[in-house]
Design a protein around this nucleic acid. Sequence first.
DNA 1: GAAAAGATTAAA
DNA 2: TTAATCTTTTCC
Length: 271
Amino acid sequence: MKRSHRFKRSIKPKKSLHIKLTNSNNEQDITATTSMTLSSSIKPSSSLIRANSNLKPQYPISSSSSLISFEKSTILSQDFFQIDALDLAPRLLGKFLRRDDVVLQITEVEAYRPNDSACHGRFGVTPRTAPVFGPGGHAYVYLCYGLHTMLNIVADKEGVGAAVLIRSCAPVCGLETIQLRRGQKTEKPVLLAGPGKIGQALGITTDWSSHPLYTPGGLEVLDGPEPEKILIGPRVGIAYASPEHVNALWRFAVADSPWISAPKNTLGPPP
DNA sequence: GAAAAGATTAAA
DNA sequence: TTAATCTTTTCC
């Protein structure tokens, strides 16, 4: 039976987290940690254009090149996303996701494509998957195992069912907000390595599905430095798909980044 | 209508 | 290793 409509889910009361975010966990450390992470695996990009005065990272800016890169980064235009998901996926590595005070840098992704037996679009357009078939540059957010909100970035032109799953990120700004939303007071990769954790850290629900990522406000994708080296491997958790697609090397990660989900031993250098 | 399974996570 | 948790899709 089809329901004529469904209620938007109201925001559930937050878990009673009483994490003390004291200043003894000082901001200097946060900046340093982030800088080290980024500079070890990401090189500055020549595609950075001009400063966006709206970007005000809440932590003190060091002279680290990675943070300067973020400050200068601009929102990506829609045409950036309107390419084959297999091309878009690796290009998203190093880019930034921003929602309010939280900024994450993408470190691991997977491509899902037309005629792909692992893609949610394999059954055609449904209420859930409609955004996947829309124009590139929008979000596709779905609930996995009834618990986890998974963020995808829709790829390619309108009518093509393709998207890129964001599997892991490194924290750049808003660490305290991330920790509150995640319910974990840590700076280790367990904080953001895994697709369900990205949705949780960004505080999004399935109501965000189809949200445009190329317009200011809400959830945005910003330009960022291209990684020096990447790793590739088969996608995770798609055993139900055909062997051809189970074996396809459509998972991409920033080499040497600690912000990578399990399993890591299936990732390796491209041929 | 009912049932199974899922692009997962955290805790035991 | 397993429970948690619920929507979507498929089968009878």
